[in-house]
Design a protein around this nucleic acid. Structure first.
Lengths: 248, 248
DNA sequence: CCGCGTTGTTAACCTATGGAAATGCCGGAA
DNA sequence: TTCCGGCATTTCCATAGGTTAACAACGCGG
């Protein structure tokens, strides 16, 4: 994998992730990297990149930082429906629909590429494996969203939180953002509550419980998993849906 | 819209649905219909069309009948993560991932087209608007799945059930399966409970409540919405995410 | 005709989770 | 240094929804 120094480092997560999902040809990787570097943007924490109802005319790829997708009911109840982690793509092909159904907000400072639709379409037309990679990304997103449905609908509070921790950990791992048994976890308990469908108070109780059980440590925006097997088992976590391992 | 008699009737829902989502050229519609008619299958109620973990090598399009997507935890808790209604597509592009993350089971007798991957790829390569239509379908699926997340995570029981009724009703409407203020609703209360994340008992209580409020009638697998506005308002339902109305 | 399995309904009881509010902690602005 | 706002934590109480169990209605096979 060639390096372009600092800039090359930026596209690192994306390339690495795609290579797990759908191996890229040398040319495809180069074209992708080139396109990304031409379209760099940054945002601070707490910025809305898209708002429910917006029309979409570009594809965003996250190079570093965390974002979340969320929806809000008229009376203010909010659900975080997914996180977007480094290397992941917001909305490939979302420009085909008239308007987006949810908002996307940064949780941390974020670096991202914003590729305008014509540029994006040119890119995937010239490199078929890239088109397939983005399709994989979309299909995978769908699968993750379904797992969230069972998480929200059928798991108990402790299982929900444990499951979220497992999932994030396993999604960060392939892009090299797990260090030993720790990873960044830059979300407030309020966000965590909205992601698991719990109240803040009960979320806090649940985290205490996970701590008391010796499963995790969570402080200063850093998650440490003390016993991954036990955590997975407490979460009824099975990683198949993440499709992290290549066929064959 | 041309008719091919009975067989043309079979593809009717699909064409009609795509025309709302992403208008098809005359040629595209004809090619799609032709492909569908070459690959007809039928299944009885309660059959598993795909099972979690299966590799996928074809695309299925539902011509008539209901199916549902579901996932099950090790201990048997089940979540229905979505329904698949006439005119909708299972798994466009799912063949790009090594294995499917959920099961698909028929709720009623079903007629469907099962298009093998090479045939499907040939089809979408020859007709760009078809490729886009299937992409729309996938993106829309994603949006619906997100709405289910907020439904499961943040709505109260009555709101959940009301919301599900509204959604199904609005999804059936564009394919002509709504008759006045009624539609088929061929699912047991157990299924409904698994779709809303409730227990059967509480789901039953909730339905009684909706009946008592004069909002719906539900018997003999038939749903009648007595006051659509009131139901939508009770559900905090806003239909934007369904993208039922064309741009411009 | 009977018996059985599936589905819907109701009741009684219980617990996981929600809601409101107070407290503490910490870091940043002035 | 002090004040303030965001976040985490805890306590106390309320309740929506889960669990178990029993029963009725219905369809179906024998």
């Amino acid at each position: 994998m060639r390096s372009h120094g600092n800039e090359g480092g930026l596209a690192h997560a994306v390339i690495r992730r795609f290579n797990v999902l759908r191996p890229l040809s040398e040319d495809a990787a180069a074209a992708l990297e080139q396109t990304i570097l031409e379209a760099l943007f940054r945002a601070g924490p707490g910025e809305d990149l898209t708002v429910e109802g917006d029309p979409i005319d570009s594809v965003r790829i996250v190079l570093s930082g965390w974002l979340f997708r969320h929806k809000t009911l008229e009376d203010g109840r909010r659900q975080i429906v997914n996180f977007i982690l480094p290397g992941e793509t917001c909305d490939a092909y979302a420009y085909l629909l008239p308007a987006i159904d949810h908002s996307i907000t940064t949780a941390t400072p974020v670096a991202y590429a914003e590729i305008k639709r014509p540029r994006f379409e040119k890119l995937i037309e010239s490199e078929r494996t890239l088109a397939e990679a983005f399709l994989c990304e979309t299909a995978l997103n769908n699968a993750i969203q379904r797992e969230w449905a069972i998480n929200l609908g059928r798991r108990a509070a402790l299982e929900k939180v444990a499951h979220l921790f497992c999932e994030i950990y396993e999604r960060l791992r392939p892009v090299g953002l797990v260090d030993g048994n720790s990873c960044n976890f830059p979300v407030t308990q309020m966000d965590l509550a909205d992601a698991t469908g719990l109240s803040v108070v009960h979320l806090n109780r649940t985290i205490q419980e996970l701590r008391a059980a010796g499963l995790i440590t969570l402080r200063e925006r850093m998650l440490t998993i003390l016993d991954l097997d036990a955590l997975k088992s407490a979460a009824l976590f099975s990683p198949g849906y993440l499709q992290l391992y290549r066929r064959g």
